[in-house]
Amino acid sequence: MLTIFGVPAPLLFGQVLLGLINGAFYALLSLGLAIIFGLLGIINFAHGALFMMGAFVAWMLLNYVGIGYWWALLLAPIIVGAFGLVLERSIIRRLYGLDHLYGLLLTFGLALVIEGLFRNQYGSSGLPYQIPHALQGATNLGFMFLPNYRGWVVAAALVVCLATWIVIDKTPLGARLRAATENAPLVQAFGVNVPRMVSLTYAGGVALAAFAGVLAAPIDSVNPNMGTYFINIVFAVVVIGGMGSIIGSIVTGFGLGVVEGLTKVFWPEASGAVVFFVMVIVLLVRPAGLFGKTA
């Protein structure tokens, strides 16, 4: 059997793939966090809970309304995004201009409340969600078997991340968003309704989290704690990529997923800590993050 550095190739590639899948979630989640932090200056600790809501909404759509995976992929982000819109309009809006710490405390509290409500209603043992028919089974790539659903997750996350990046970097809408990130009052003086843009940006970041939640539903069981697993690592990803950097969060998300996967092969005990180890190194060498701008 083919071996690389003394490791059987299928094992190595399998871990890289697992890493890419985790990386897909890191990228989607940190992308939303980066957009929200860039414009609102809010460190959205509720992101993990909103990711979990995405998975739950997909489960509810299936079990209460009979709407399947593909429609859930579209509807859950819209529903959870609308919930985010209400949160921003009613509560988060009051914190603009205050210290970042207030936003962090508020959204952390929101996360606890949301997760508590779901735990109360659905327990914490987890609910099953089937992989859609079209994506069941696996494909033989020659050097390894690729479970179709996992391939789909990586591809879908990549497409959504790149689409988001293109919108922000290449369109007039994105230009207004970047301009408002730099100097919101001045953008307003050009006739742009900035408060509305802020609300929609928050909703957009939340929708990305919910989209990731739907993708995750068939992989993990749908349970109220599924966001907490990711959120700590995702914050490390955001710091490593550079606070508010769009491309930084995408590249770092996927990259760290792979680094984590490879660590599992060569030094399994370290895989849980490697992301934070990278964070320490990056903060020492480039305090603004890999893609961040030094102020």
């Binding site: 007039p172 230009a175 970047r178 301009a179 050009f190 006739g191």
Partner: peptide, 9 residues
């Protein structure tokens, strides 16, 4: 992009 922002209205 700066210029086009001016024409937003």
């Amino acid at each position: 992009e700066n210029l086009r922002l001016g024409a937003y209205v």
